[in-house]
Amino acid sequence: MDFLIGHYNYWVAIFLMMIGFYTVISHGNLVKKIIGLNIFQVSVFLLYISMSTVTGGAAPIITEGVQLYSNPLPHVLILTAIVVGVATTALGLALVVRIKEAYGTIEEDEIHEQDHSL
C-alpha cells in the first residue's frame, strides 16, 4: 500500500503517459493527435519534477536556516523541455492548418482516401 501511495505522482505520470500515447495512436483527427502528444510530453515533465524532490527538502531558493534543498536541476531541464514542447505544438498545429487548406479536412482516413499513397 505504501508503495502505491508513496509513489502516487509516478502513477499519475504513467497514467497520463499512456493516455497521451494511446490518443496519438488511436485518433484519426490530426488536432487530437497533437493534444495526445502534448499530454504525453507533460507526463514526462511530471516524471522529472517528481524525481527532483528530496525527502524533507525545501524549495530550492536560498533561505537562511535551511540546510536541505530539493534538486533544482530537473526544473531547469524541464523549462527547456517545455519550450521544445511549445515549439513542437505550434509547428504541428501550423501543419494542420496547411493540411486543412490543402485537403479540406483534418481526418486522417479522409486524407488517405484523397491521396492513396500515404
Binding site: V24, Q41, V44, L47, L91, G92, L95, D115
Partner: peptide, 24 residues
C-alpha cells in the same frame, strides 16, 4: 506537393514520440 505536408506531420508525430522516449 501537398503530400509534403502530411509527410511532415507524420514525421513530427513519430519524431516527437522518439525524442520524448529519449527524454524519459
Amino acid at each position: 506537393k501537398r503530400q509534403a505536408l502530411t509527410s511532415a506531420y507524420q514525421y513530427l508525430i513519430m519524431g516527437t514520440l522518439g525524442a520524448t522516449f529519449f527524454l524519459i
